[in-house]
Simulated scan of single mutants.
Amino acid sequence: MIERDSPLANPALEDIRGKIAKAAGIADRKPSEIALIAVSKTRSSDEIRPLLESGQRLFGENRVQEAMDKWPALKAEYPDIELHMIGQLQSNKAAEAVALFDYIHSLDRPSLVKALAKEMERQDRQIPCFLQVNIGEESQKGGCEIKAVPDLLAQARSAGIEILGLMAVPPDNANPVPYFALLAKLAREAGLAGLSMGMSGDFEKAVKLGSTHIRVGTALFGPRDAPAG
């Protein structure tokens, strides 16, 4: 690993950390209880590097192939990076996902449980996972049905997969608070401590409702470029 001086200050990163600390304080929580995942989907290595140089080490990607194109080289340079798979995962990408990612937030069906368990055993690599719940019951979104959480959790545990908690994305343009509260309730009922919830526009509310992992992209990197054409 290349030796570096002290981390460089990054205004956006410091702003997010400050807001996390404030929200945690209101909820009588410690900021250290909340993991900040920088969502780097569609972002180039050059865009990611300033956050790395500022000390950020947790990053989230939505697509396996995109992650494979940029993260092996960055991980070689910064071995303490934690890479989180936060997008929908196809079963036929299980081998690549297990090889590259350190955490998976989108385990949502029995076929994926089988594919991941098979690859974890084959590669002798255990990847902690979150069960993704379709908390808003939206047909276009991934995630298991709310009523399916207990069975899917049992299947994952029987397959030897460590389940840290639950993950969800509330419906767009809706008040996220009831959905965060419902996910927290489901996690408590399942005996799970982890909650992967909260993004750029609502992470402070998620922290107040118990989130342990927030996924922030635009607030850290700025708006994405509009597609050409």
Rank of each mutant, 00 (worst) to 15 (best):
G217K: 07
E96A: 15
N10G: 06
Q155I: 00
N62A: 09
D225R: 11
A27E: 01
S139K: 05
W71F: 02
E3G: 09
S106K: 04
A156I: 14
E53H: 10
S139C: 03
I135T: 11
S139V: 09
P11N: 14
I48V: 15
P50E: 11
Q155M: 01
K41R: 08
K75G: 06
D124H: 14
K141V: 04
L52H: 00
A94W: 08
L131N: 05
F180I: 03
F130T: 00
N175A: 13
L131I: 13
S111F: 09
D15K: 15
V149E: 05
E77T: 04
A226G: 06
T218Q: 02
G136F: 01
A12M: 11
M120I: 09
E121Y: 09
Q65E: 15
I214W: 06
D202V: 06
R57K: 08
A97E: 05
M167C: 05
G87K: 05
A187N: 05
S106G: 04
D80K: 09
R43G: 07
I2A: 14
G143C: 04
E14H: 13
Q155L: 02
A9Y: 11
L220A: 00
R49C: 06
K30A: 10
E96K: 15
T212L: 01
A193Y: 03
V177W: 06
E33A: 15
G194C: 04
A38W: 09
P150F: 08
G60Y: 00
G217E: 06
V39F: 07
I104D: 11
E137M: 14
V177K: 09
I163W: 04
A99P: 03
P50L: 12
I86E: 03
C144D: 02
K141H: 03
E119V: 06
G60L: 03
K205N: 11
K185G: 04
T218M: 05
P50C: 11
A174F: 02
L186R: 00
